[in-house]
Design a protein around this nucleic acid. Structure first.
Lengths: 196, 196
DNA sequence: TGTACATCAGTGAACGCGCGTTCACTGATGTAC
DNA sequence: TGTACATCAGTGAACGCGCGTTCACTGATGTAC
């Protein structure tokens, strides 16, 4: 069903609502989201979004869960094709955030989300665990670092998260060279150089 | 005027509205803020906040501007009393964010603020400049670092901003030892150790 | 010291609007026979 | 192949509510004389 016909059944309304919500958030922030505004944007009855997501928290949770799922996938792809997995994961994290600012804007805002959403916990937890595993594996590769996994993991997460946030907000330029240079010095201190 | 008498004129309603707004944001996020909810919280007519701030963006801009002013002051105090100014500024940045989550939550959200607020530009610009100056001064102190000011500044900002964000969100613990350890490795790579 | 007046911070009733929610419904799809 | 029926995605009118905004007002403060 790829044709855009005017029909009673949308075909994939749930997906369309997620995409529209992410776009709306990217444009006007999470505060501007209402079930009715999303319905209007998709061109559907105002009651339709509630049919799929229940309420605003349900909609935003679905956007966030889908974001975590895709972030996790992007990090997995990056790690598999690189000789410096942690560095690649860091770049993938920042790249995902820049390419999906709407999703990113709600993924780390628990007060906007449904704390009981199972998908959110599943995908959020998997993405988190992937970062921790990558740090642990990276530290295991070298014996000349005396920092704990916790400290390196916190620093790695902080730098990629902060970089992504500041770039999305427009406070730092979205420059790949800058991103690589920043990550080189923070995510892989024991390598201390540029990746292959 | 320190007594809490029931009077027609509040005494310092503007200040009280700023405090209440920051508290409300810290509790329920910026999405939950309305002029009427703040008026209710302070116990004042629902039209009073508009009298001082015009609209929601004006109120949030005033909260953000006050936040930048105090952040700037905190960083200045930290730099003046430390032998490692950049490290001290970084800790002050994180500490400010943790102690003022309401202010911090709107300070870097341009879509919620009035882009023409002069106080916001003034104090935001001063805080930004202080960070850049501290990085430049820090780099000037050592000749064995081959990174540009831009890269070090971006990394320093990213790590303190990311750390603050993740701690406020509850994703990293608010642990001073962890904060110091994370900053030691990222903000001052050429010193590579702990401060005095 | 006392009076008159200007100023302005805060009030409260009224308004129109967009919101979430409800609910009886309509129309498309899939399955049983 | 055709008919009957169950399912469910999406509709649209109606509701009550909190919101921002307006506006004539009230009451406290400060200044002029």
């Amino acid at each position: 069903v790829s044709e855009a016909r005017d029909q009673y059944h949308h075909g994939d309304l749930r997906r369309a609502l997620l995409v529209a919500t992410a776009a709306e958030i990217a444009e006007h922030g999470p505060s501007a989201i209402s079930l009715r505004s999303i319905a209007r944007r998709v061109g559907v009855s105002h009651a339709a979004p509630a049919h799929h997501f229940g309420d605003r928290a349900g909609l935003l949770s679905a956007v966030a869960a889908d974001g975590f799922r895709r972030l996790n996938q992007a990090m997995a792809d990056a790690a598999a094709t690189s000789e410096a997995p942690l560095f690649a994961i860091g770049k993938a994290y920042v790249a995902f955030a820049c390419a999906n600012p709407g999703e990113f804007a709600v993924m780390f805002r628990p007060e906007l989300l449904d704390p009981d959403d199972p998908d959110l916990h599943t995908h959020g937890g998997m993405a988190h665990q992937r970062l921790l595993d990558a740090v642990a594996a990276d530290l295991a590769d070298c014996t000349d670092v005396d920092e704990s996994v916790e400290v390196v993991a916190a620093r790695s997460w902080a730098v990629v998260h902060g970089l992504a946030t500041l770039i999305i907000t427009g406070l730092l330029p979205a420059d790949d060279d800058l991103i690589s240079a920043v990550l080189s010095g923070a995510v892989q201190p024991h390598l201390g150089g540029t990746p292959a």
